[in-house]
Design a protein around this nucleic acid. Structure first.
Length: 425
RNA sequence: GGAGGGGUGGCCGAGUGGUUGAAGGCGGCGGUCUUGAAAACCGCAUCCCACCUUCGCGUGGGACGGGGGUUCGAAUCCCUCCCCCUCCGCCA
C-alpha cells in the first residue's frame, strides 16, 4: 500500500497519480475525511484512557492507606463504559480507513510514461530475429495437436475449458523449458532456487496486492481459508513478511518454479484460443528484495535476466514500457516482454518485470536495518516472470515450425531433450 | 481427525490481577580500567500510533503469538483464531 502520510501531506500528488491510472480521484478526499474522523476519535480515546490509567494506578495506594475507594471505582466504571463506546466507534472507522487504503494503487515512478491504455505503452527495444517462412505459419494449437504434444479436448474434459494436457514430447518439452530457465537463472544470474507452497492464506495474498481488490481473479478452497497462487510472486515475496532483515542480507535474488492458477473471469472470447489464455500455466518467477536506492538499477538487471531466456531460445521479442493506464495495481514501473508468434500474428506477453518499490513491503511488513540500531525501513520488492511457459510454448512451436509440420528444438533446449533436434509427425 | 502440553524482549527464561516495557542469565552497544586484549565493574537498549504557541534524549496511547471479552485495573482470568511440541488415528 502507499504511505498514508503521502495522502495527508500531498493529496494533490496522489490525486494526479490516480487520474493518470484512470482511477476515481475522489477516493483521496473520502479517505482524508475518514482519517480526520479517526484521528479525532483516537485523541479522545487516548485522553480518557490516560485518565483511566492515572486513577487505576492510584486505587491500590489509596486502598492500602485504608481509604474508601468505592466511589472512585464507580466513577471509573462510567469512564470505562464511555471509553468502550468510543473505542468501538474508533475500531469501525479504523477498519474502513485501512480497507480503503488497501484500494489505493501504487504511485507510478517518474519514468513511467503517462497514458490511458496499452496503445500508449512505449516500445523500448526489440531483440531476436523473426524466423522467415516460405509457407503460411500455422497457429500453435494446430501444430501441437498434429504432433500429439498437447491435448486440449481431454484437458477440457477433466478440468473444463482453459485447461490443457501436455503429452509425451509435449510434456517433455514443457519440463525442458522449466529446467532450462531454472538452470539459467541459478547458474548464470545468481538467483537462489525456491520451491514454494501453491496454496496461501488471505493475508499473504493481501501482502502482494491480490487482495482485497482482485478476489474474483483467484481460485479459493471451499473448506479452508486458502487460495491457489496466481503466480509464485505471492508465496516468494511473502517469505520475509513481518521480518526485519539486516542490510548484509540485501539484495536477495530468488527464483521459483510454480504452476499459476487464474480464473480469468470475464476474459472469455478474445485471445483465448489454444495456449494464449489458460486457467493453469507454468512459470519461472524471479523475485528481488533490495534497498530503496538500488531498486531501479536492479530493475534493469532483472529485465535483462528475463530477456536472456528469449535470447537463448532465439525468439523474436520486444520490450514495452507500460504507461500509467496499463500499469499493474501494485507496480510503480513495469516492462512487459512480448514474444512474436507468427501463427497467431500476435505479440504475446510472456513476462512482466515490475518494481513495486515499498508498496508490497508495506503491506507485508518487510523491513531492513542499515545499522543494528537504526530504525527499520521498508525494502523494495521486484519481480519478473522469467518466463511464463504457456505462451512461450506457443511462440516456440510457431517460430520453430517447418513446412513439413515438424518443429525444430532450439539449441538451448537440446541438452534437456536428450539431444533431440526435431519433433516430427 | 482425536487427546494433552505450550507460545514472554536478539536468544534462554521468571512472572502472586495492581508503578512490569516486563526479574535473572546469555548475547549486543557505550564507558571505567589496560600498552593492547581478557576479566571485573558501571551504564544503555524495542516497535507502532496520536498530539504539540518549545518537533524535544517532548507529552500521551498501544504492543508479552493475533483478535475479542471480563475488570476501576490483564503478561496473569474467559472466548476465539494461528503456530509449535507429545501421544493416538489416517496417509504419499
Amino acid at each position: 500500500m502507499i504511505d498514508y502520510r503521502l495522502i495527508r501531506s500531498e493529496p494533490e500528488r496522489v490525486k494526479q497519480s490516480l487520474q493518470h491510472r484512470g482511477y476515481a480521484v475522489s477516493m483521496v478526499d473520502e479517505w482524508l475525511a475518514i482519517d480526520t474522523r479517526w484521528r479525532e476519535l483516537t485523541t479522545r480515546v487516548e485522553t480518557l484512557t490516560a485518565e483511566q490509567n492515572r486513577v487505576s494506578k492510584k486505587i491500590p495506594q489509596l486502598k492500602k492507606a485504608g481509604q474508601d475507594v468505592s466511589a472512585l471505582i464507580a466513577e471509573m466504571r462510567t469512564l470505562g463504559e464511555q471509553i468502550k463506546q468510543l473505542e468501538q466507534e474508533r475500531r469501525e472507522v479504523e477498519e474502513r480507513r485501512e480497507q480503503m487504503l488497501l484500494m489505493f494503487p501504487n504511485i507510478p515512478h517518474e519514468t513511467t510514461p503517462i497514458g490511458v491504455d496499452a496503445s500508449q505503452n512505449v516500445e523500448v527495444r526489440r531483440g531476436g530475429t523473426p524466423h522467415p517462412f516460405d509457407f503460411e505459419p500455422r497457429p500453435h494449437w494446430e501444430i501441437a495437436e498434429r504432433l500429439g504434444l498437447i491435448d486440449f479436448e481431454r484437458g477440457a474434459k477433466i478440468s473444463g475449458s482453459g485447461f490443457h494436457v501436455y503429452i509425451g514430447l509435449g510434456a517433455r518439452l514443457e519440463r525442458a523449458l522449466i529446467n532450462f530457465m531454472l538452470d539459467l537463472h541459478t547458474r548464470e544470474h545468481g538467483y537462489q532456487e525456491v520451491f514454494p507452497p501453491f496454496l496461501v492464506r488471505p493475508e499473504v495474498m493481501q501482502g502482494t496486492g491480490q487482495l482485497p481488490k482482485f478476489e474474483e481473479e483467484m481460485y479459493r478452497c471451499a473448506d479452508d481459508p486458502l487460495y491457489l497462487i496466481p503466480t509464485a510472486e505471492v508465496p516468494v515475496t511473502n517469505l520475509y513478511r513481518e521480518e526485519i532483515l539486516s542490510i548484509e542480507q540485501l539484495p536477495i535474488y530468488l527464483v521459483a518454479y510454480s504452476p499459476c492458477f487464474r480464473r480469468e473471469a470475464g476474459a472469455a472470447g478474445r485471445l483465448t484460443r489454444g495456449l494464449l489464455r489458460v486457467h493453469q500455466f507454468n512459470k519461472v518467477e524471479l523475485v528481488k528484495f533490495t534497498t530503496p536506492e538500488t531498486s531501479y538499477e536492479e530493475h534493469e538487471r532483472l529485465l535483462r535476466d528475463a530477456e536472456t531466456v528469449l535470447q537463448r531460445l532465439e525468439l523474436p521479442y520486444r520490450i514495452m514500457l507500460l504507461c500509467t493506464g496499463d500499469l499493474g495495481f501494485a507496480a510503480a514501473k513495469c516492462y512487459d516482454l512480448e514474444v512474436w508468434s507468427p501463427g497467431v500474428q500476435q505479440w504475446l506477453e510472456v513476462s512482466s518485470c515490475s518494481n513495486f518499490e515499498d508498496f508490497q513491503a508495506r503491506r507485508a511488513n518487510i523491513r531492513f536495518r542499515r545499522e543494528p540500531t537504526a530504525k527499520p525501513e521498508y525494502v523494495h520488492t521486484l519481480n519478473a516472470s522469467g518466463v511464463a511457459t504457456a505462451r512461450l510454448m506457443a511462440a516456440l512451436l510457431e517460430n520453430y515450425q517447418q513446412a513439413d509440420g515438424s518443429v525444430l528444438i532450439p539449441h538451448a533446449l537440446r541438452p534437456y531433450m536428450e539431444g533431440l533436434e526435431q519433433i516430427t509427425p
